[in-house]
């Protein structure tokens, strides 16, 4: 299942994924208030989703939001400032990773409570329906959220009211340390949508072209008025749950994850197509490095937020 795309678009997808990974590597060099949730291994999900969504299509995501925000178009300097709690970010440093939003580009935001964004996304979708905007609301959540009642309630109401809502489960295999099989009783996560008559597919979330194809199909159908859809995107969380969590998975398993690295896979595909060689890759990496350096400079120069000003927005 490959979405035919142009040479230029293929390189854009790769560069976008490279930026996500390099950005998170740069973030690790920054002081960390609290902890960060990284998306290494899940870049294809973020890039694929944002490739298909229009800017007018509201996007909500989980607290694993950094890749999603970058892919959506939050400037990397502003995002870096936001993540370390400085003014100059889209939310003046108040939101951080778990709550970053940028409504001007349709990013209604991350939500730090697992499964907490589901019913909110249904509400955003309801507003699109009621205001006849024609927009599709996309909500990305982790496999951990599939054990929460919020998903049941959201699927039910979305099906009842035929909301223009796309539910995307970013299944990276683990809720912190709990494997999907240990936490969720259903055989397939897509089975959760079946009782509500919500069409659901499971796809390889490490293949950015597959993600684009599945998104296209779902978004087109929802925009045509066919009600909600569910996509499970299977990928691997290549690192620990958070920057503050121990990695306890066996090293043999982590070794295997290398084969599912979406960036490595996509590089191979583009090379096979003859669209990428070492020189081109170095060029893309250099462009990414320049962007990251600029982002680091922006974040370093950004002021700290003002408490009195923040207080006025309560």
């Amino acid at each position: 299942m490959e979405q035919a795309c142009s040479h230029a678009e293929g390189l854009r997808r790769l560069e976008s994924m490279l930026l996500l990974r390099a950005f998170e590597a740069a973030l690790l060099r920054q002081p960390k208030p609290g902890f960060q949730l990284l998306s290494r291994g899940e870049e294809a999900v973020a890039v694929g989703i944002c490739t298909v969504l229009e800017r007018s299509d509201p996007l909500l995501c989980s607290g694993r939001s950094i890749a999603m925000a970058l892919a959506r178009g939050v400037p990397s300097g502003g995002l870096l400032a936001e993540l370390i709690g400085k003014d100059g970010g889209p939310n003046k440093g108040r939101a951080g990773r778990a709550h970053v939003s940028m409504p001007s580009i349709g990013l209604y935001g991350a939500h730090g409570v697992v499964a907490g964004n589901l019913s909110v996304a249904a509400g955003v979708a309801l507003a699109q329906q009621q205001l006849h905007t024609g927009a599709v609301t996309c909500c990305v959540f982790g496999d951990g959220a599939c054990g929460a009642g919020a998903l049941h309630e959201t699927l039910n109401i979305a099906a009842l009211w035929q909301l223009p809502l796309l539910l995307v489960c970013d299944n990276n295999g683990y809720a912190v340390s709990t494997a999907v099989r240990q936490g969720i009783a259903v055989e397939q996560l897509t089975d959760l949508a079946a009782p509500f008559g919500v069409p659901a597919v499971a796809i390889d979330g490490t293949d950015v072209d597959d993600v684009v194809t599945a998104m296209h199909e779902a978004v087109t159908a929802i925009r045509a008025g066919s009600g909600p859809r569910f996509i499970e995107m299977r990928c691997t969380r290549m690192g620990p749950h958070s920057t503050a969590t121990r990695e306890e998975r066996p090293s043999a398993e982590l070794e295997r994850f290398r084969d599912t690295d979406p960036i490595m896979r996509y590089e191979q595909r583009l090379r096979a197509l003859g669209w990428l060689d070492d020189a081109k890759l170095a060029e893309l990496q250099a462009a990414v490095a320049t962007a990251i350096t600029a982002a680091e400079q922006y974040a370093a120069d950004a002021p700290w937020p003002d408490g009195d000003e923040a207080l006025r927005d309560v």
């Binding site: 509201p58 209604y108 907490g116 589901l118 019913s119 909110v120 996304a121 249904a122 509400g123 955003v124 979708a125 309801l126 507003a127 699109q128 009621q130 205001l131 009642g149 919020a150 309630e153 959201t154 039910n156 109401i157």
Partner: peptide
Amino acid sequence: AVTVGLAAGAAAA
């Protein structure tokens, strides 16, 4: 839960 969530999301949008 979903009723209040719907309200919150719809209000934001």
